[in-house]
Design a protein around this nucleic acid. Structure first.
Lengths: 225, 225
DNA sequence: TACTTTTTGTGCGATAATAGTAAATTGCCC
DNA sequence: GGGCAATTTACTATTATCGCACAAAAAGTA
């Protein structure tokens, strides 16, 4: 598949700028791409002309206002794609199904489906957030990332088993089951997201688990090409 | 300043894909850029290789998972830059100062500063959101956008005057003053954001207004270099 | 001040990357 | 299978890009 060198370099630079804590200098970009500084200057100039980056007064290059056009947009897409899958998951497990994304060091519920035929159900508000290291959802997301030194033992265990079960972590009496959305075999992108269900103590974990894993696989296929 | 044609086209395509409701087809991109379809295919292939876009099963091109690297990042930057300015604004007005961004059709509080020396203060939780057409913040953001047919009269008025005052819109007894963050003279990017203050009924609007306007101008200069 | 170093930016010719044509392949609907 | 659209490849002229070298400004140093 034919790719374009100049665009490829520009996108790699842009992403590197995005993930850097306080922006990059032109030299950093040139080093990162292993290209001459002149090229980096022209890449930056083009990114800047499109509003994707801007220069801080001290010369650091940081994200620009045009990034706003992307804020929330992928999450919105994820929500739309995930909804039918979550509804199926909720119906199969009789529990509240959710898809959550990592945002900085928090876990955000992006999409939720509640079972139709239950008298009592746990509701998990879309947009609600909690620390990543709390609850099945956050732990599952961490487990989807590469091993990090000093990580919680629960995370290591969840990475090995592919899922995570917590009881009463966020709410007394609530049981959560979640697993990370795996990356695709040929894909290079990792989603930093998880699917799961949450219910009262009566949740049948053994029944729910395979459905959650299946949902994760389905979503992976749909969201990661 | 020298810009790179290939990168420029790729970025324009990417942004167009982002703002489209349900993705674009290759033909749309070719038309939009006024280039041959073969070029559009190569641009898309490069964007796709970088995970910025992906092809839906039906051929539509939508944003890809790599966009996650940008989600929340610009908002985070905005928050950091805005904080000192908001603290000043809170001190000058004795009211709670906030910066809010539009996200889809909601208004999200991104950064908040409360006055130090007040016994009672209104708190405006970071991350809280409400419909854009409700409250001074949302109306100010709408007023920062170009005129839209059928928009609320309040918005039109706010666009003309450059600010918006609401009483009891979100909470009975609360007064809000907000104004859009203007675009820079030479800039082409619009921020879709607003600054403002919110307080109890005792807010001295005549005193606060110039400070709010000044804060908006300051932030515009800092965020939209 | 003068001098050095770093950072930032620009001409310009050679050349490799791209554009754009046309042709081939694939997938899909009748 | 045949027709049609979507997608990909092959290929060459062209031109956009590369990357050296050079310049200007800024920041540091003595």
């Amino acid at each position: 598949m034919a790719t374009l060198q100049t665009l490829d370099r520009g996108l790699k630079a842009l992403r590197q700028i995005a993930v850097s804590a306080d922006g990059l200098r032109v030299n950093d970009i040139a080093d990162f791409l292993s290209v001459d500084r002149a090229i980096a200057y022209r890449l930056v100039a083009t990114l800047e002309a499109n509003g994707m980056v801007q220069k801080a007064p001290d010369g650091r290059i940081v994200l620009g206002a045009a990034i706003m056009d992307f804020e929330g947009r992928f999450a919105g897409h994820v929500r739309a794609v995930a909804q039918p899958c979550l509804q199926r998951l909720a119906a199969l497990t009789g529990a509240t199904a959710f898809l959550a994304l990592a945002e900085q060091d928090e876990c955000v519920a992006v999409s939720v489906a509640e079972p139709q035929d239950m008298l009592l159900r746990v509701s998990y508000r879309v947009g609600s957030r909690h620390p990543l290291n709390l609850g099945a959802a956050g732990i599952a997301i961490l487990a989807g990332r590469p091993f990090a030194a000093g990580e919680d033992e629960q995370v290591t265990k969840a990475r090995a088993s592919g899922y995570c079960v917590t009881r009463g972590a966020l709410q007394p009496g609530a049981v959560g089951v979640a697993c990370p959305i795996p990356s695709q075999p040929q894909g290079r992108t990792q989603l930093d997201a998880c699917v799961g269900v949450v219910a009262m103590q009566n949740l049948d974990v053994d029944n729910a688990l395979p459905h959650v894993l299946q949902a994760a696989a389905d979503l992976s296929a749909q969201l990661l090409r």
